[in-house]
Structures are given as structure tokens and as C-alpha cells.
């Protein structure tokens, strides 16, 4: 069943047409080399509908998301501008939204951002003038009503498809669906979830989402990150906040010879997509192959998601 499109976003058009959407993400470089983005984009651009550019992820200072998104745009690749509320106040956030819109960047993902204590500038201040839900409201206000938060008119409002993250695995679990409802009420038109490893828990969450009809109010893209090794699985399980990695994943990788673990990690990811395609309410996949972008085409092809639809 197709839904109405509100923006020129290609990602929105694909989701609205009822196709599974496929996105991936790239982290900008820790320097000013533009080739770092172009090279990563070249690896995956024919296998995804849009590429998220992270915004100083894990609070490690990098090239800004906006500049990297503009670079993608000039290469003919559709970007998803990630924007965290940690580093900028409402003036800077709205200003960057307009800057992005001036380049016809049509997708934005609104996040609060990891705490700065995880990064390389732990002594810095955090801003959080707005939170992620309020950033969603802000983009929708600018787009739909053509207004700044301060009340003045925006000339040529930003035509952005507005997304948010959701973590079905964070605590307290019993409000995770309410929290999604809240993000939708704040304006989230698509959701990219935290990396899924605990399939049963994700399916339980999706069932509650579908029971409340929330999957008809937003597009839920299941987040996946292939494991490179058992070491990565252990790290994700024990050290990354809000991550739920079941013991059987760690065991499966641990039982695989070291030189075959990466291949096994990719295999697990493909199996997950195959299973998730059958889960009611899943509208697409967000494949976050961290510093492993070259694996994305293989995963997309093996999961039967290639070629990407023309819209």
C-alpha cells in the first residue's frame, strides 16, 4: 500500500511505494580529506537508497556531517544528514538545517548523541538546548509551517523527510513502544533502529508497535551491523550502551575459526535480514557496516534487496 510523499526525498518515495528501503552509513574522516567520503560512497552507492552521514559519532571529533552530506549530494548520492543536539543550540541547529536544505539535502535523522565522555574531548561542554524529540518538532515546524522556533517565517522552508532513531533494547523496556509513539507524535516519519542482534526481543517490540498501529504512522527500518569478529561481539555486548547481543551470537562467532569469523558475521547479518523481511511492520533496513562499507553490497545482494528500485 503506497502512502503520500511530502518531500522530494528518494528514500521517502521508495518507502511510500511499498518497497523495502535500504540505507547505510558512513563516518566522516578525522581530517579534511574529501576523498575519504567519496571512496566510501563509491563502494555502496549502487546498493542503497541513501547514506547516513554520522555527526561526530561517539563524541569523537570529525569532519562535519553537513559538509560530508554536501559532498555526497555533488556525487549524485542521496544523503541522510544526522544531527545531534549535543553540540549545537537551537540557533546553530536551525541554521545548519537551512544550510543543508540549500543543497537540497532531503533527509535528516534527529538524535541526542552519545555523551561527550565517550569521545576524545571529554572535558567539553554539552549543549542539549533541545532534545532529539524537540529537534524532530523543530524540523517539522520549519518544513510544514515555514516557521523558525522563534516564530519568524522561513523563506524556502527545508523539504526534509524527518527521521529518528529508536532503541528497542534500551531500558526501561516497558516504555520503548510509548517512546516510539512519542517520537512519531513529535514528527518522526521514519525510524532507524539500534543494531538488532536479539531477534526475539525485536520481534516482540515490533508486535507491540504493530498492535498500536504505529507502523502505519512511520516507516521502521531495522538496524543491522555485521560483526567482524568475536572480539567485536564481546565489545558490543559489554561496552556499548543500550546494545543487546545474545550469548548465542558471541558463541557462534567464538566457535568459528578466527579467519572465518568475518564471513560468519556477514552470514548472520544476511540471515537476520531474511528473517526480518517477514516481520510485519518492518519497512526497510539500515545497514551500519562500521568501517567495513565494502561488505554492504554483498549483504544487500545476498539478502535479495538488489537491484534497488527506480522511483
Amino acid at each position: 500500500m503506497s502512502r503520500e510523499c511530502k518531500t522530494p526525498s528518494r528514500l521517502e518515495k521508495i518507502l511510500a511505494a511499498g518497497h523495502f528501503g535500504v540505507t547505510s552509513e558512513c563516518g566522516p574522516p578525522r581530517g579534511s580529506d574529501p576523498e575519504a567520503i567519496s571512496e566510501k560512497a563509491a563502494l555502496i552507492k549502487d546498493h542503497v537508497d541513501a547514506i547516513n552521514i554520522t555527526d561526530n559519532q561517539t563524541s569523537v571529533c570529525r569532519m562535519c556531517s553537513l559538509a560530508a552530506c554536501i559532498r555526497l549530494k555533488t556525487l549524485g548520492v542521496e544523503p541522510v544528514l544526522q544531527m545531534v543536539t549535543r553540540d549545537r543550540n537551537r540557533i546553530a541547529l536551525q541554521s545548519d538545517i537551512l544550510g543543508a536544505a540549500s543543497w537540497d539535502i532531503n533527509n535528516i535523522l534527529c538524535l541526542s548523541g552519545d555523551h561527550q565522555s565517550f569521545g576524545d574531548h571529554a572535558n567539553g561542554q554539552n549543549v542539549h538546548d533541545l532534545d532529539s524529540m524537540q529537534l524532530l518538532q523543530t524540523v517539522r515546524l520549519m518544513r510544514d509551517e515555514g516557521k523558525f522556533l522563534g516564530g519568524d517565517d522561513v523563506k524556502r522552508p527545508p523539504a526534509m523527510f524527518v527521521g529518528a532513531a529508536a532503541n528497542p533494547f534500551a531500558d526501561p523496556y516497558d516504555i520503548r513502544v510509548s517512546r516510539l509513539a512519542k517520537k512519531i507524535a513529535a514528527g518522526a516519519e521514519f525510524i532507524q533502529t539500534q543494531c538488532i542482534y536479539n531477534m526475539e526481543k525485536f520481534e516482540d517490540w515490533m508486535k507491540q508497535v504493530v498492535d498500536r498501529g504505529l507502523h502505519e504512522k512511520t516507516y521502521i527500518m531495522a538496524g543491522l551491523t555485521p560483526m567482524k569478529s568475536v572480539g567485536m561481539a564481546r565489545y558490543m555486548k559489554n561496552r556499548v550502551p543500550g546494545m543487546d547481543v545474545p550469548d548465542e551470537i558471541v558463541k557462534r562467532l567464538g566457535d568459528t575459526p578466527k579467519e572465518k569469523q568475518a564471513e560468519e558475521g556477514v552470514k548472520i547479518c544476511i540471515e537476520q535480514i531474511q528473517r526480518l523481511k517477514e516481520v510485519k511492520g518492518v519497512a526497510g533496513f539500515h545497514i551500519m557496516a562500521i568501517e567495513w562499507e565494502e561488505k554492504v553490497p554483498e549483504i544487500v545482494e545476498a539478502a535479495g534487496l538488489h537491484p534497488r528500485p527506480e522511483v
Partner: peptide, 11 residues
């Protein structure tokens, strides 16, 4: 993060 609509995903 003085999040007014929490919790964030890190809880």
C-alpha cells in the same frame, strides 16, 4: 544530557 523527553538510548 538533560533530556526532557527521555530516556535516551543509553539507559
Amino acid at each position: 544530557k538533560r533530556v526532557l523527553n527521555g530516556p535516551c538510548g543509553g539507559s
